[in-house]
Design a protein around this nucleic acid. Sequence first.
DNA 1: GAGTGGTCTAGACCACGGT
DNA 2: CCGTGGTCTAGACCACTCC
Lengths: 239, 239
Amino acid sequence: MKIDTPLYQQLVADLKQSLTSYHSNDRLPSERELTKIYHVSRNTVRVALNQLEDRGLIYRVHGKGTFVAPIFVNETDLSSMYSFSDQITAVGMIPSTKYLDFKIISAQQEVAKQLNLEQGDLVYYMVRLRLADDEPMMYGTSYLPVKLFTNLTKDQLERHSLYDVLKIKYHQQTMLAFEDVMAKNLTDQQAKILGVHPKAASLEIIRRTINDKNVAIEFTKTLARADKFVYRSRKYNDL
Amino acid sequence: MKIDTPLYQQLVADLKQSLTSYHSNDRLPSERELTKIYHVSRNTVRVALNQLEDRGLIYRVHGKGTFVAPIFVNETDLSSMYSFSDQITAVGMIPSTKYLDFKIISAQQEVAKQLNLEQGDLVYYMVRLRLADDEPMMYGTSYLPVKLFTNLTKDQLERHSLYDVLKIKYHQQTMLAFEDVMAKNLTDQQAKILGVHPKAASLEIIRRTINDKNVAIEFTKTLARADKFVYRSRKYNDL
DNA sequence: GAGTGGTCTAGACCACGGT
DNA sequence: CCGTGGTCTAGACCACTCC
């Protein structure tokens, strides 16, 4: 166990682990009990529980207790897709990524527009197939401006996640993404790549990511198998 | 001003209001400054700021400060679906809703579970077809607990939006919705109702809405034409 | 009344960003 | 170095649920 991990994060990890041995709607130990078990303050317990509540793993009822949230679907959540690997690992499968293509091309039309570049500016073009236990899950095309990420190599990307590379090597922080989620019938070719029947429905996610300076850094189209993925979100009505 | 509104909620409301006079990426007063301005503890300030951050209105940078999040304009978009009529009107078409069914039934299995009811508890069951310029757009089934909304009539719903009725007649406030977005191939029957070709892809949105007391008030499944709708969202990457 | 989550206080030290 | 947000403590009272 790392020493400088915040207490509440350790608590989150520990509770998340122990959730696996509970059933839906089981009651967790009360907040005051957790303070005794983990020797932390109640505030720390609540911060940790807030995290789990935000992720939809637990729910609280005033005066009654904290409970294990029912599982709505088996599918993996697409909405926090930055860590495909983590998500797949979390459900006990082995993730992998196959680079079907990786090269530098000049940006045209839509890509140039989305990345706020001039026509002809150079961009990385990559086509990736994501698999879980060697079964195809998602298929995506990404574009990144070369001038922002010089010396980006396929080799790096095969060793680390794209977002890790952008964060660590290129110091891109506080990224904001706009996502459009659509339903599409797969083409025969796409269906073949993803190993599903022709004309099957799929979730298409188009994402445009900008950094903290409002500069576009990535434009991606992803096709995800409709039988494996859900895009989960939460909305507040009072704004 | 209500007297028993939690301090942090008053703070949220007040800050949300003052955000309108800021520009994107402006810096807010620091947390310690806010404690002095509002005469509350720093913890209370942070709880309030957490709310605003969750809703995407602000973002924080360690060591620098708290900032106003960039503003976005919503286009025809499924993700703020509470006002189908407004959205359709906004693009210059005439919205209408056809009630294909409206009755009271007893909740079974999934519906009872999602609404946190006992099996057999009564629920309103309604099937609605939404049209724009008389062209079918969306098709949805909704369930609401009868015990929360006595005397809900089809007549009211045909005159006002569901959420307006819940808000004004039943005083439901600060609703939170969990949505799962999926891609589905339409059945032949569904395709016929929506006027698209058989096996067409569609966006399915399953929504569970709770009020400010954590009580489930609505469970809805909606099928939206894939050629007409997009589910748009935005996400921050740096948690 | 006892136990729960919800709210709140007044401190403290750490990690980070900029001067 | 100082000011920022991030984490954490040890209390307190309120609002709610159940018996």
